[in-house]
């Protein structure tokens, strides 16, 4: 396995170095703008997105005061990550008055439909699993 790992590692280094050289070829202004965005992306994730996720989770678990059903977490993962993808269309930042074929939907309505669907499906799954557990073992100590 060591041989494979060394070969893979060298291959990776070579590809990354090739990319870095390409980047240098694009000039200093381009490089500065690129490095700003490269570092900015890491910073936004590590200093904003990740701590906010932890803080939000902390608040939700304190407010509800008990363990959340797993389906709620699944729903949150789906809605949370898809909302990140929706940011550029929700903000319509690329819209142009001279091109009505670009960003030609009501994205706020679309996102609201997606959010509603996620909430409804999540609630249905939670209700179904509660009913299932209630029938099997009855309410009380058997519940999580």
């Amino acid at each position: 396995m060591t041989g494979t790992r060394i070969a893979l590692g060298l291959l990776g280094l070579a590809a990354a170095a090739y990319g870095a050289l390409q980047l240098l070829d694009l000039g200093l202004d381009n490089l500065v703008a690129t490095v700003t965005w490269l570092a900015g992306g890491v910073l936004v994730h590590d200093a904003v997105v990740a701590p906010l996720t932890i803080a939000l989770w902390f608040v939700v678990s304190r407010v509800t005061g008990r363990r959340l059903p797993g389906a709620v977490v699944v729903g949150a993962v789906v809605l949370g990550t898809v909302t990140v993808i929706a940011v550029p269309v929700l903000g319509r930042f690329g819209a142009r008055a001279d091109n009505p074929t670009l960003l030609d939907r009501n994205y706020v309505l679309g996102w609201a439909m997606l959010a509603t669907l996620t909430v409804v499906v999540t609630a249905a799954v939670v209700a179904a699993s509660r009913r299932g557990r209630g029938g099997d073992r009855g309410p009380g100590p058997g519940r999580r």
Partner: peptide, 19 residues
Amino acid sequence: ATHYAVAWVAIGALVLHIA
């Protein structure tokens, strides 16, 4: 041009990470 150059950096760093 930048998306192309950084693609090589990303795939290279990914292969190295797997190694």
